[in-house]
Amino acid sequence: MNTFVAVCAGVLLGAGTAGAQARIDAPWRVGISLGARFHADSSVDAFASGRSQFASGLSLSRDVATFRERGTVAVDLDWSMETLDGGFGQAFHTRLSAHALTAGLSVRWHVARWFEPYARASVGAGYSDLALTPQASSNASALAGDAWTLLGTAGAGVQLTTGTFLRRARFVFAVEAGGVFAMSQTMRVAPDAAHPGSTPADALPVGATTLGGLNLGGGYFKMLVGLRF
């Protein structure tokens, strides 16, 4: 941890004394993000043993404007997902897959050629897909359900860019943390036709069961690795 802080401090100091260097002309950025999500709402406890989960995603960004020589505004399209495996009631295995597709706006400040802190905000939609599998019997049918919601994020990070290769391409590395603000999703489950167990194909119709509101808001941390070109 001390090493990490020392490196960050050194970078900042170095960037501050570097003077204004030329902005990198690589408006596009694609990347893969890996990180963690923290969920504040207890509704998540039904599907996971802990509130923090691993998340991954893809990101596509393009610089669209500059300002004050150092500032860059970019728009991005970000997709992330996390999978929560757990169980509740000593009766069910659960698998919750949460996807978030957001469109964001980020503002970077070119401190050094290769070092750019930034702030980012995004809005988008979240989709949660839930499967409940009974623990007791393999022949029992599972219950499944899904729901959409609106969400937004706000965060800040640091982007690092390498030199070029293949004439224009550069590696980019970013670290970002912030908050996720999501609306509660009403989760309803019903017998899963894909996993009927011993339930016949012409099973009697069963109304969905409302499990209640699921809120995946909280915090996030991610590291992005990608290319700029």
Binding site: R51, S52, F88, G89, Q90
Partner: peptide, 20 residues
Amino acid sequence: FALVLAACGQRDPRYGLSMA
């Protein structure tokens, strides 16, 4: 980072109780 964040919330024990 996750540990830091996770320290801020513990799982509701009610979900660990039996539904029997």
